[in-house]
């Protein structure tokens, strides 16, 4: 039981509610270093809430959370985590360039000190990894949905995290961006990063995934190897909703 390296995420018996309604009813979730874990489940099964509990933006009513072996309350090594929230838009009320948005991912490194050359170089590298370096000076509001998603992924990669947490990275993303996303993810896994992915279905990322955790009504219904090509469709209560009706590319990683 004594791991030489503690797990990147260790969530035990997590109970959480939102607006008085119980959403997590005792969720266990472990992500080992270098492991790729997919979190699956129907709408409202608690997968997004689980991820928000892991990053601490939804507080636990009961249960325990450790990140890299450190209890959440004492955890300070935020530079080890890269987070890609569920995208609505990367734009806000004031224009901002792609570079400005990605640069916020370097805040754990430079903190209150000025933004230096090595920070700038890290931003360039992350933008190159998602194929957006040529758009660095453009406004994020001028990009397509898939391109905005790539910017948000670059923002998470810019600190070379040991754990990458992504909430529905494939939702509403065009084919070209899906390919870039899959390639990027593969490179991160090869580098040794652990990945926790919220997915609606396994889809083109399936060959990368080591383990699938399926949630149903705030409880873990399955924890083990991903079941190829069935995924969510085999589960009761699955409502099949496609956010985008366009053609899904055949097996990006094959």
């Amino acid at each position: 039981m004594n791991h030489p390296i503690p797990p990147a995420v260790r969530l035990r018996s997590a109970i959480a509610s939102r607006g008085g309604r119980p959403v997590l009813r005792g969720v266990d979730l472990t992500v080992q270093p270098g492991e790729v874990v997919a979190l699956l489940g129907a709408n409202g099964s608690g997968k997004s809430t689980t991820v928000k509990a892991v990053i601490g933006s939804v507080p636990l009513d009961r249960g325990m959370l450790e990140l890299f072996g450190v209890p959440y309350a004492k955890f300070r090594a935020w530079h080890r985590i890269g987070y890609v929230p569920q995208r609505t838009t990367a734009a806000s009320g004031v224009p901002a360039t792609v570079r400005e948005v990605v640069s916020t991912g370097r805040l754990p490194q430079h903190r209150l000190l000025p933004f230096r050359r090595r920070d700038r170089e890290a931003v360039d590298r992350a933008l190159a990894a998602v194929g957006m370096l040529d758009r660095a000076g453009d406004g994020v509001a001028d990009l397509s949905g898939g391109q905005q998603q790539r910017v948000l992924i670059a923002r998470a990669l810019v600190g070379s995290p040991d754990l990458l947490i992504m909430d529905e990275p494939m939702a509403g993303v065009d084919a070209a961006s899906q390919q870039v996303l899959a390639d990027t993810l593969r490179a991160e896994v090869a580098r040794g990063a652990a990945v926790l992915l919220v997915l609606h279905e396994l889809g083109p990322l399936e060959p990368l995934i080591d383990r699938a955790v399926v949630l149903r009504d705030g409880c873990v219904a399955h924890d083990g190897p991903p079941v190829p090509n069935t995924g969510l469709h085999a589960l009761p209560g699955h409502d099949h909703v496609h956010p985008h009706a366009d053609h899904t590319p055949p097996r990006l990683l094959a």
């Binding site: 928000k52 601490g56 935020w78 987070y83 929230p85 806000s92 640069s103 754990p108």
Partner: peptide
């Protein structure tokens, strides 16, 4: 500026940077 920009741009993400 960089810190305030981050929290106004994306509060959830800013929290994960440890701000």
């Amino acid at each position: 500026r960089r810190q305030l920009f981050a929290i106004c741009q994306d509060e959830d993400f800013a929290r994960v940077t440890g701000l």
